[in-house]
Design a protein around this nucleic acid. Sequence first.
DNA 1: CCGATTTCTGACCATATGGTCAGGACTATG
DNA 2: CATAGTCCTGACCATATGGTCAGAAATCGG
Lengths: 207, 207
Amino acid sequence: MARAASTKGKTRIQREKTEQILDAALEVFSTYGFRGSTIDQIAAEAGLSKPNILYYFDGKEAIHGVLLDRLLHKWLEPLNQLTDSDDPTREICDYVMRKLEMARDFPRESRLFANEILQGAPRIHDQLTGSLKTLTDEKATLIQHWIDKEKIAPVDPHHLIFSIWSTTQHYADFDVQVQSVLGDKSEQRFEIAADHLNKMFRAVLKK
Amino acid sequence: MARAASTKGKTRIQREKTEQILDAALEVFSTYGFRGSTIDQIAAEAGLSKPNILYYFDGKEAIHGVLLDRLLHKWLEPLNQLTDSDDPTREICDYVMRKLEMARDFPRESRLFANEILQGAPRIHDQLTGSLKTLTDEKATLIQHWIDKEKIAPVDPHHLIFSIWSTTQHYADFDVQVQSVLGDKSEQRFEIAADHLNKMFRAVLKK
DNA sequence: CCGATTTCTGACCATATGGTCAGGACTATG
DNA sequence: CATAGTCCTGACCATATGGTCAGAAATCGG
């Protein structure tokens, strides 16, 4: 256990440096994945020395673990907000917009998650089959209710959710590709994406 | 230059071993990304010694390069097949199905590509802004023609293509997550995905 | 079956990397 | 301003990793 980490967030310096390190680590891990990242890179990004990093955290794995914990919480939040409503289409489209905003505002978190999943999710497999599955099943049931009440068109709820996840996260995870293909029209990519996805999911859900 | 690579694919052994190495490398690189993979891993996967690997290839980078070259060719193929037709909706849905089949049959290639893009596409940036952009622009123009002729509903062609890419590749790149969430219903995931995506894109394109 | 060529290996090297540690520098507090 | 505790560093270590090389082993053509 790193000397400082145990008494978590006690002093001002501890709080500041911890955040500084986590921010740098997010930058590095989200780009190169866990195995492709080095403590030296994180140290350089944070403007600290390697031993200083290891003064605050037990090691590379520990830093990564904290980031994943925070991430998963943040990740489930938008879906959590999906609740029953008189206007299910609007409710679902609002969810799509929240996810797209996350892709725009927190692309590093999205890429960290993508990297982890791509590599087989060795460190978050339990959460995937646990809290993520539970929440997804719950919301899929809600969507099925809407279908049963004939408020939206019949769609497979789980795969609808997959489509929402994939289309929105694409703008974070594959941003390099999106910008390359769009060229000079890249600037407004999120506005146009919002319009497009809104249209698309409305069409899918329309009875 | 590796002694064998220069006289490319001359002898039988060279052809066999080269393929053996590339297959092992695809397995490793697609899982751990370029920086996270080691020659030792590739050697172990291929059942060869490290120096033997380096007898056939100039180094880690060279192996990765060959894989990316092959990948990009394979990647552009399904989109290439998108041509003018009396039934644009069917034409586009066929493309969606081809992409989904690729996600199912060549998940390693999809993940290799995803890893490369996630890490900022340092090695294929030129192809992204070159051949990929050219082809995508061309097909976007075709789609725009269909819209102008009022054969399909008005959609942003580029973002429609992004939606196709993301929804289909999701089943390869995020397969661990998909299976975790679906649980025991994972078995038929590709059949249900095909049905769902078919419905979805038909709804989007319907006038 | 013999010499020439190709294929393969163990031993080795330089560097990178995760991590440790003794002790010095700094800071908050009485 | 003394000092107890916190914070930080240079030097160091063990292992991992990309890559090399001399020569052994296998293969091939005649």
